[in-house]
Design a protein around this nucleic acid. Structure first.
Lengths: 140, 140
DNA sequence: AGGTATAGTGTTATAATATAACAAATTTTT
DNA sequence: AAAAATTTGTTATATTATAACACTATACCT
């Protein structure tokens, strides 16, 4: 049994469920309006669930978007160590799981030798699909 | 002459000046209240200046804090490629300029081979000074 | 099982962060 | 000097997030 899978509360389940259903990251108030039929009425209920879900690593916060996305890494035991690629055009976000990069970041320490508890890395660019669309549009 | 140093507008100078005076990152509304005596009256004036200063690389946005900090890298010609260390305790932010890490990030491409225009990396931990204070407090 | 500590809930109000929209002034380019 | 582009000043409002408080459910302990 996984220590982290203590079982979520009602609101935590509702919020996680909604986030997992979405391929793209979702915003807090979008979550709110989508789960009101399930009995979540006010922002603090959403933000509390988000806080907990982030803490246990089930979701991540995409800082540059103020949005939230489900962790895609199975059996994720490393909350607060995240790498994303973000398309500047369609804003789609993918979680990156690159062992070499992961190791580089994990082992990094600064000039003082400080070790870090966590990190968040966001790459920005144009995703393949958007790049293709741009090329389409160039053809007169 | 540097292409980027086109000369800043009045509000841009005022805002940059204030950010550069501060060792810690500053928040937009803190900037506003501190430059009101210089004739900047409303949020949009601050946010516009911030937007431009970020664009030209004079300042960076610390995403996890919604705050803004002057670029510490002399002759910075790489806006949107930033690495910070952030103390969880005192929230002080240092810009990291590590050639090896820089190269790793610059050269990184994802599974599709996509090259990225930029990135933002934020490391979280406890800075030396805060760690020392914690040890002090342990000594009954 | 009963007591108590911990975590979660529901609610109202409000704080903090950020942008839209528009008219006027300034600077840059031609 | 006219046209174009940028910056300004302003009001209003949108978006994101938290404080505070009373209450309820769950876990945990001997």
């Amino acid at each position: 049994m996984d220590k982290k899978s203590k079982s979520l509360s009602k609101n935590q389940k509702i919020v996680l469920d909604f986030i997992q259903k979405n391929k793209k990251p979702v915003k807090a108030y979008s979550i709110l309006s989508n789960v009101q039929k399930k009995g979540i009425n006010a922002p603090p209920q959403v933000y509390r669930a988000l806080e907990k879900l982030i803490e246990i690593g089930k979701i991540h916060r995409v800082e540059s978007q103020n949005s939230f996305v489900a962790c895609k890494i199975s059996n994720c035991d490393t909350p607060h160590k995240t790498v994303f690629s973000i398309c500047n055009s369609c804003e789609i976000v993918s979680e990156i799981n690159d062992p070499k990069l992961f190791k580089n970041l994990k082992d990094f320490r600064d000039k003082d030798g400080t070790v870090f508890d966590g990190y968040n890395l966001e790459f920005f660019g144009t995703c393949k699909s958007c790049k293709n669309k741009q090329i389409e549009n160039t053809k007169h």
